[in-house]
């Protein structure tokens, strides 16, 4: 019988990503409820030393395949390795990150393991010994509670939503032979082009300052960038601003852009079209600055200022500078 709550830890360039600790903590909580162990699969080159860090967040056993073939993420190598160790150990639940690479890997695994998966979940619980995963659908216009009848029961967790709690367990290393060689990789990574902006990606940012149609033009984003700099935030944009060519595609937050859940989202000159709200309404705190008191964004905002953003945003920067 399937047993254990497993995660696939995500590392990049030899460092575990924060979402890995969120996965470990969420898995620990489920495992405690089920009276099970937490297992983590860790793939990479020179990554065995990371196992204790996973132990710190509640992982009992870390299944490690440490090999040059895993130095760079590829769907083919990673999916083959995870599928093999999962089939050999038969965990009941398997959690992955709803990060860009986590989505790629987990979806391929659904095919390999012939099971089901709840994508981009924001809440997990156990009912009658089974996982129930809550997730936004229709871009957050509704939520669905999903159960998985295949095995393992898979779920992707949205980054930044589940807390990472320290809860020390053994983090014992169990090495496994993934049986994967370079010849198995059909889709290869030819090049990695690093983003040189030095900014945290929107999906991982703790604070986002976003500008919309109310910015009136690309030349005005300097006031958004100044506020973002003071707060250590990443700059985002609405679809209107991206479609107008004011901001790059990669800045777009919303149903057809990025889904974000920072601790703080500051929306400037964004009316709050349903497709934008879909991408940011799971933010922990929302501030809205808009001169239209009827803008739908105010219904989602914890703190709102009805005024001209060109007056307010520079004042926010000034006030923030005094305390940061």
């Amino acid at each position: 019988m399937s047993k254990g709550v497993w995660i696939v830890a995500e590392q990049r360039d030899g460092a575990l990503r924060k979402v890995s600790f969120e996965l470990a903590s969420a898995a620990r909580k489920l495992a405690d409820e089920l009276g099970d162990e937490v297992g983590a699969v860790l793939l990479g080159a020179g990554v065995e030393g990371l196992a204790p860090e996973l132990g710190k967040y509640g992982v009992d056993k870390v299944y490690v395949a440490d090999d040059a073939v895993f130095a760079q993420y590829t769907t083919d190598a990673y999916a083959a390795a995870v599928a093999k160790v999962v089939k050999e150990n038969d965990p009941a639940i398997l959690l992955l990150a709803a990060s860009v690479l986590g989505k790629d890997l987990s979806s391929r695994l659904v095919g390999k393991l012939a099971t089901g998966m709840a994508s981009d979940c924001v809440e997990l619980k156990i009912e009658g010994g089974k996982l129930i995963a809550k997730r936004p659908m229709y871009a957050g216009k509704t939520f669905g509670e999903v159960s998985v009848s295949g095995s393992p029961q898979m779920a992707q967790l949205r980054p930044n939503v589940f807390p990472a709690n320290e809860n020390a367990k053994a983090g014992e290393v169990v090495k496994f032979d993934a049986g994967v060689s370079a010849a198995d990789i059909k889709a290869k990574v030819a090049e990695v082009q690093q983003d040189t902006s030095g900014k945290v990606d929107l999906t991982e940012a703790e604070i986002i300052v976003s500008g919309g149609r109310g910015m009136k033009g690309p030349e005005n984003y300097n006031i958004i960038e100044e506020l973002a700099d003071v707060l250590g935030a990443t700059v985002g944009a609405s679809r209107a601003a991206v479609d107008a060519g004011w901001r790059p595609q990669s800045d777009q937050v919303g149903q057809t852009g990025k889904v974000v859940s920072p601790n703080l989202y500051i929306a400037c000159g964004i009316s709050g079209a349903i497709q934008h709200l879909a991408g940011m309404s799971s933010s922990k705190y929302i501030v809205a600055v808009n001169k239209d008191p009827d803008a739908p964004i105010f219904a989602k905002a914890d703190y709102g200022i009805v005024d001209d953003l060109f007056k307010i945003v520079p004042e926010l920067t000034t006030a923030a500078k005094k305390i940061m």
């Binding site: 659904v110 012939a114 099971t115 089901g116 998966m117 709840a118 129930i132 936004p136 659908m137 957050g140 216009k141 509704t142 939520f143 669905g144 509670e145 999903v146 159960s147 998985v148 009848s149 295949g150 309404s281 929302i286 105010f298 219904a299 989602k300 905002a301 914890d302 703190y303 709102g304 200022i305 009805v306 005024d307 001209d308 007056k311 307010i312 004042e315 926010l316 000034t318 006030a319």
Partner: peptide
Amino acid sequence: KAKIEKMTPPPARPPGKIIEGEDPAAKA
């Protein structure tokens, strides 16, 4: 392989605060 057990409306956010006043600097 997977089933939607039930669908619910999105969780309501508690009503927010509108910061009143005339002075942009004070509100900010």
